[in-house]
Measured scan of single mutants.
Amino acid sequence: DVEPGKFYKGVVTRIEKYGAFINLNEQVRGLLRPRDMISLRAENLNVGDEIIVQAIDVRPEKREIDFKYIP
């Protein structure tokens, strides 16, 4: 289970104008929005990159997770 405030290692699987999709594993995926990329620009991300993200909002009923990148 993903808990708000905890840090996780994930892999960038898709990049859109509104953010990057980060997979923690095959069943868990969330969104890293540009406003939550402190000191990281979306254009510096590539599909396949491994990054550490913090879960900031977890909505299990919608199967949605928002992440924040903190260097």
Rank of each mutant, 00 (worst) to 15 (best):
R35S: 10
D57M: 13
D49I: 06
E26D: 14
E16K: 08
N46T: 13
I65M: 04
Q27D: 12
D49M: 14
G48F: 02
K6W: 05
L24G: 00
G10A: 11
F7W: 11
K6N: 07
V11M: 08
L24D: 01
K17Y: 12
P71S: 14
Y18G: 06
N44P: 08
V2A: 04
A42P: 15
Y18V: 08
R35A: 10
D1K: 13
V12S: 00
G30R: 03
I51P: 00
I56C: 09
R63H: 12
L24K: 00
P34M: 14
E64L: 14
N23V: 11
V28Q: 07
G5V: 03
V58P: 04
F21P: 00
A20R: 01
I52M: 09
R41E: 09
T13K: 04
D49S: 05
N25H: 07
I70Y: 12
N46D: 06
Y69F: 11
G10S: 01
I51Q: 00
L45D: 00
L45H: 04
Y8K: 00
Y8M: 01
F67S: 03
D57G: 14
A55T: 05
R14V: 06
E3S: 11
P34E: 11
A42D: 06
V2P: 05
K9N: 05
N25G: 10
P4W: 07
R63T: 07
E61A: 11
I22P: 00
L32P: 02
P34Y: 15
G10V: 10
E3D: 06
D36L: 07
P34Q: 15
N25K: 06
R29A: 10
I56Y: 11
F7T: 04
E3R: 13
K9I: 12
R35H: 09
K68A: 15
N44Q: 15
I38Y: 08
I38T: 11
L24Q: 00
N23P: 00
L32C: 07
R33G: 05
E50G: 05
E61R: 08
R29I: 13
M37G: 06
K6Y: 07
A42V: 15
D66E: 09
L31K: 05
D66C: 12
I22W: 02
Q54E: 05
I70K: 05
Q27N: 14
Q54P: 01
S39N: 14
F21M: 07
A42C: 13
L32Q: 02
G5R: 04
V58Q: 04
I22T: 00
K17T: 11
V2C: 07
P34V: 15
K9M: 09
R35C: 10
F21E: 04
I70E: 08
N46R: 15
D66Y: 15
V58A: 04
D49R: 04
I38G: 15
V12E: 00
I70R: 06
D66G: 07
G19L: 10
Q27L: 12
Y18A: 06
L31V: 06
G30W: 05
K62Q: 10
R41A: 11
E43I: 12
T13V: 11
E43S: 13
F21D: 01
Y69A: 06
D49Y: 06
K68R: 15
S39Y: 14
P4D: 05
R63Q: 13
V53Q: 00
Y69Q: 07
V28N: 04
L24T: 01
F7M: 08
E26N: 13
F7Q: 03
V11T: 11
Y69C: 07
G30I: 12
I22D: 00
T13W: 05
G19W: 10
V11C: 08
R33N: 04
V53L: 07
S39P: 15
D1P: 12
D36M: 08
A55E: 02
E50L: 14
E50H: 14
E64R: 10
I51N: 00
K62D: 07
R59Y: 05
N23G: 06
R41T: 11
K6L: 08
V11E: 02
P4R: 13
N46E: 11
E50F: 15
I65Q: 03
A42F: 15
E50V: 15
N44F: 12
K6G: 07
I15W: 03
R35E: 10
Q27V: 13
S39D: 14
S39H: 14
Y18E: 09
I65N: 04
V53M: 07
V28G: 04
I52Y: 10
P34I: 15
L32Y: 03
L31P: 02
I51A: 00
K17V: 11
I51C: 02
A42N: 10
D36G: 07
I22G: 01
N25L: 07
I70C: 10
P60F: 10
R59L: 04
K68Y: 07
Q27P: 04
D49C: 07
R59V: 03
L24A: 01
G48A: 01
N46Q: 15
D1E: 12
E43P: 08
N23D: 10
V53D: 00
P4A: 12
K6D: 02
L32V: 05
K62P: 05
G30Y: 04
M37Y: 06
V11G: 00
N23T: 13
R41G: 12
D57W: 09
I70S: 09
I56W: 07
N23F: 10
V2I: 15
V12P: 00
L32A: 02
D36Y: 11
G10L: 06
P4G: 05
N23A: 14
V12M: 01
Q27I: 12
R63D: 10
T13Q: 04
I65K: 03
R63A: 11
K17C: 10
E16P: 01
Y8H: 00
V12H: 00
K68E: 05
I22F: 07
T13N: 02
K62V: 10
V47E: 04
F21T: 07
V58R: 04
K9V: 11
I70W: 13
N44T: 13
Y69N: 02
Q54L: 15
T13M: 07
D1M: 14
K6E: 05
P4S: 09
E26C: 12
V47P: 05
L45G: 01
F67V: 04
V47T: 04
F67L: 09
R59C: 08
P4Y: 07
G19E: 05
Q27K: 14
L40D: 04
E26P: 14
A20H: 03
V12G: 00
R63E: 09
Q27M: 12
I65Y: 09
V28T: 11
Q27A: 12
D66P: 02
E43K: 12
R33H: 06
K68F: 08
F21N: 01
D49W: 06
R14T: 05
E26R: 14
G30E: 03
M37A: 06
E3G: 04
K6C: 13
L24S: 01
R59S: 05
E43M: 13
E64Y: 14
Y18P: 02
F21W: 15
L40N: 06
I51D: 00
G30S: 15
N23I: 10
I52F: 08
R29C: 13
F67D: 03
V2H: 03
K68M: 11
K9H: 10
V12L: 04
T13D: 03
N23K: 14
I56L: 12
V58M: 05
E50Y: 15
I15Q: 01
N25A: 08
Y8G: 00
D1N: 14
T13G: 04
E50D: 07
F67Y: 03
A20P: 01
T13F: 05
D66I: 15
E26H: 13
N23L: 11
P34R: 15
I22E: 01
N46A: 14
G48H: 01
D57I: 11
L24R: 00
G10E: 00
V2R: 02
A55R: 02
R29F: 11
I15P: 00
